[in-house]
Structures are given as structure tokens and as C-alpha cells.
Design a binder for these strands. Sequence first.
DNA 1: TTGGGTGTCTGAATCGATCTAGTAATAGAC
DNA 2: GTCTATTACTAGATCGATTCAGACACCCAA
Lengths: 355, 355
Amino acid sequence: MSERVTLLTLARDLGVSRATVSNAYNRPDQLSADLRDRILARADQLGFAGPDPRARGLRSGRTGAVGVLIDQGLSYAFSDPTAVLYLDGLASELQSDGLGLLLHAGTGSKTDAELVRAAAVDAWVIRSLPDDEPAVAAALAQQRPMVVLDQPELPGVPLVGIDDADGAVAATQLLLDLGHRDIAVLAMPLRPDGFQGLVDAVRERYATYSVMRTRLCAVEQTLSAAGVDWGAVPVVECAVNDMDTGALGAYELLDRTPAPTAIIALSDQLALGALRAAHEMGVCVPGACSVVGFDDAPGVSTALPPLTTVAQPLRERGQVAGEIVRALLRGESVATPPRLPVSLVVRDSTGPPPR
Amino acid sequence: MSERVTLLTLARDLGVSRATVSNAYNRPDQLSADLRDRILARADQLGFAGPDPRARGLRSGRTGAVGVLIDQGLSYAFSDPTAVLYLDGLASELQSDGLGLLLHAGTGSKTDAELVRAAAVDAWVIRSLPDDEPAVAAALAQQRPMVVLDQPELPGVPLVGIDDADGAVAATQLLLDLGHRDIAVLAMPLRPDGFQGLVDAVRERYATYSVMRTRLCAVEQTLSAAGVDWGAVPVVECAVNDMDTGALGAYELLDRTPAPTAIIALSDQLALGALRAAHEMGVCVPGACSVVGFDDAPGVSTALPPLTTVAQPLRERGQVAGEIVRALLRGESVATPPRLPVSLVVRDSTGPPPR
DNA sequence: TTGGGTGTCTGAATCGATCTAGTAATAGAC
DNA sequence: GTCTATTACTAGATCGATTCAGACACCCAA
């Protein structure tokens, strides 16, 4: 039997103490350079790859990994450009501290919570999950440093958000100012239950994705203030936040009589889907129907037509989350920073309604 | 001082043994349902989030995480569509086994190797790294299950690859068959040293990215066999595998006299860059210059013009890697599967040379 | 009555490191 | 020649679980 090589093996072999071997790896200043070289050389010979990370983790309480909890499976995160940008920002910030990203998905099932419970991480970053996601509760229970992006709002946990209401108001007001009254809304999931279709007031109010609640509410208030009857405004929820599903939702909206003269899409992926649906149905954008998106994701400026949208700093928000994590891990206490401002970028997908 | 709650705390509190509490979490069949409920309930009251993953990891040797080592920083991986697809496939496969992905980047520095050494993972998946990357050596030293995508080739480690030579030959032969003789090559990095520009034979031969070596070699042989003097074929290496850098490289190629009538880009990102450069320089594709890519990444079929390229199963390869990891973790031994076939997809970016 | 089987629960060893407090030896200051 | 600093190293407790070999009680069959 070939025994596993540990610090102790090495220590015995060299006639020094375990602590000294440990120090050779972790505190080079605690022993003579000569001995250190000897230890490292012998370690190499014996095929010792350095102190076992698991044991080190237990003893020192640090694993060098930050858990990242995202919505709807990893596949989704990798295919959503906004998620990728955010991960990019986060990663670049954490990398400089030698922290890795441990990706986990929250899909609403109990097993996700199990995975979270079993994950050895130093901190959690949570992005855009429903209020009642069990995996979030599991992460919270670990009492480790934590940061949330977008949602859910958790008491005592710093949240890196944008001014969702502002953005939704700006988009809506733009359409109102252009003269639109027959406005429709294309929403991201309100609950992670795979529902697709027209949304009623109850579902709207009890959406578990708080960002959607906020944005929808802002749209409602802006329209109501302008005298548009919210009850008559069709809101279609898309089961998945991607182009294909967005197109599906847009078909439903554009098929209605009277057809809307403008669609507010609450994400750019949905907006891109709406552009495609309109194109396929022969509906001219913005001639027959205006489309406004949300996020200013990469690629929307070169869509056909270039998309009017609410721009938010995606990558930068990932970085901010990373900075906060680092600060928390240093033991500093961090308050929720003010929500980052958004700005309406008017391109060519919006115009006055047809007369 | 509020003591940390551990299995022992809980055991004492309830007057049972530590083993029983552990079993309550890990082997429900080992104790009465009644006692188990009592334990779990009390755990909840005391704010015990379940057995500490670090300690569990040490004792049982499993952490539930697979380390993923990628090239050039996480940011790059997230912005390269082929890398995203591969991660997507890998993640979907591992998720079903409850495994998370721990992402680390290899950037050639010693500190990366340190990070790898300190990472508590059950297995490593390595994608597209140079032959001499220190982080790879560090991962190898841990003697854990391991899988490589594309490169480097490591003895005894299963590699999930494609038939690179075949693909390069097919692309080259297409151009030859169309009548091209003035062919130029746009290459991905040959070494991770940030070099950009014309490559000489020595650099070509000693490329540390073995996939590039293989593809270039296949192009060379195909051209030589057709009587084209390889020494006169300009090969421009791009420091980064992205559109912008590809455009930069293409500028250099298209500026030469005589200008090439065809460019073989060894990745689609570079090919897209070449398309852009050609467009900006007023060079008509494929009228004045044909462009062929490699990968069939998402989006290239809708490029202007749609790109002729060598298609490979990107997402699927990630899944295959995932399957192999799972098998290895189950203790099975896995041989390197045969390289997956590629296929030339002819679209509109290639045509006969101008006369 | 005995023996075996089953269902519950316990004791103690173990995983492989980190880290604090402390020893021993040497150097330098006065 | 004594006293303090500094350097180089060690002993042993500790992190928080998992796990295996029993112990104990109880029931049923022979």
C-alpha cells in the first residue's frame, strides 16, 4: 500500500516537525531558507502537492472560494449576456485576491439547498433569485459574508442594485411622450414556475422576483398617472428570459386586437425576441410598433433596428459586488450602497405611433 | 461569547451522541424518524446550518466541486462564445450529480499555480491551456481525476478533442479547390506571451498551444501538397482570440502586396474580425477575398456574409467532459475517447478568387 | 430457554493540516 | 559576564465532522 503523503510523512522523513514543514509552505520567514529548500525539494521527490486544501480549510476556516448562486441553472447563466457580464466583473475583482468562483444554480428544488449547504465557500454572492428560493435560505443559514445582486432583498445583506423604478418610468414616459396609448408589456418570469402568457393582477402583485414587481409597478403608476387604464394594458410573462421565449410572448401581444403600438420589454433579450417576432409578422418597428428594452446588453445597439433601452452598468455591478465581498472577508462591515443610476438610451426602435 | 454550533453542541443539548446527529443528516435510515425530527428541529432553533462542509470534506475526502481551469482569465472565458458553450455543456452534465464548478484561470503566472494548489476540488477539468502552463502542473500534482479539453495532451489523462487536422485540411482544400493560391492565415495565440504579428517558422514549430501547432501543420501540408510555397504564406498570430484583435491581424494581412485572395482564420472570432476589417477596408468578401473560420460558433451563420467555417460540437464536448469526470469520480477508468469529427460548413464568405 | 436477527444508538479513532506558546541557541549590547 | 533580542524550530491542542465496530434492548422462532 502506498501511503498518502502528508505533512507528517514529510516531517518524519526529514527529521523535522510537522509545523516546520507547514511553515515551509505558508510562512517562509519562519525558517531558514536552506531548510525550506530542502523540504520543498524532498516534497517534490515524494510527490507531495502541498498541504491538503481540505484540511487547511477546516483548520483555518478559509477555502479561497466564493460561492455564486444564480438563477435557472448554470446553462442559463452562461447564455444570458447580462449574467455573463456580471460574472465577468465579479471574477475580475475576486481574482486579484486569489479567490475562485464556485458556481451553483438555484432552481427552486430542495436539492439545490442541499448543494448550497454542502458547499465549502468563504462567502456567497447571490444574483437575481426569487424571494422564496430555498437555496438562498440555505446560504443565509451559513452566516457567512454575503452580497446580493438585484434580488432578493435580504435584511442586513448588502444589495447591489439599480434604480429599477427610475428605469421603468423613463422607458414608459418615453413612449407616452411619443404619443403611445396602446402599450403592452413583455415581462421576465414573475415566479420560477414556467408560466407563460397573460398575467392577471394577482400574479403581478405576488411576483416573487422583486425586481419584476418593482418595474411593473413603476410602469403601472406612470401609465395610470397619464390616464391610461392599467387594467386594459396586456402584460405577457415569458417563462424564460431569452430571445426565443421573448418572440413567443411578442407574438401573443402583436396578435391582439387592437394591436399595441408599443411594447415595453423588461429585458433586452425579450426585446430582441420582440424585434424578431415583429419582423416575422411583418410588423414594422418602429413604424407600426415601438419596442423598448431594459439593460443595454451587448449587441442590442447593432440589432435591427438598434434598440432603445434602459442602460445599466452590468460589468461594473459585478465588480462592485466583488469589492464588497472582499471587504466583508476582510472583516469590514459594508452597508448597502445606493442603487446605481440607469439612463435611457434612445435608438431606432422607438418612434411615434401610427396614425 | 456566542459559541459556534457544531454537531457536538447539538448532541450535548439533546443528550445524544455526535454520531447520531451526524446520521440525522447523512443516513436517515440509521435512526428513528422521531429522533431525527427532534434533532433537525432543535438544529433549526440553534441556527445550525448542517455539518460544516470543510470538516466533512476533510473527513470524507469529497467536496462536491469540480475545478475548471481555463485560459487567459475568467473574463476571457465568459466573453468567448465557444468557451461559454463548453462550460454550459459541462455544467449541465455535472449539475445532475450535484457537483459545482470552481472556476480558476491559468494565466501563466506562479500565483495561478498557487491557487490551484489551494483549491479543494474532487477533480479537474482543463480547457485549452499551453503545454507548459504551471497551473496544469499544479493540478496534475494533486493526483485527482482529470480531463482535458483540446489541449494540452497529458499522458494518462483523457482528452476530449476534435479532429483538428481534418478540419484545417478541409478548410484549406476548399480554398484550393476554389482556385486560391494567395492564401494567408490568421492564427490564435501560439504562446501566451501577447505576441501579435507575422510568425516565423521557429515560432510556429515551437508553439505551446498544441492545437494551433496541429492546425497550422495541417494547413502547411495541404498547401505544400498542392504546390503552394509555405514559406511565402503569411501567418499572422493574434495576441487575443477575439474579434477586435482578429480585425487587427486581418488589417496586416490585407495590407500586403500582393493581397491574399483568401484568409484561413483558425477561430471564428478571428474570422469575424477579418470580416469586419475587410468591410472597413472596402475589401469585398468573398469577391476580393474569401474568409473561412473554425468552430461554427453561435452567430457566425448570421454574420455578413454568413461565415464558411469548420463546425465542431462545442456544447456536446463540454458534456462529454462532464460524463468522463463523473465516471472517474465513480472510480471507473476512462480512456481518451476518439476525437470527435468536424465538418466543413460552406456559407457565403468563400468563393473563387478574383481574376 | 436459547439463539439469532433487527433496529437504535454510542465511543473513539481518524482525516491533515494550522497555530500558539514555548524551548534552545546564538548574537550583540553594555 | 550577564542580560536581552532575535532566529530557528517544536510540541501539542485544535478545527468539526465521518465511520466502524460494538452495545443494548427487544422480538420471534425453535
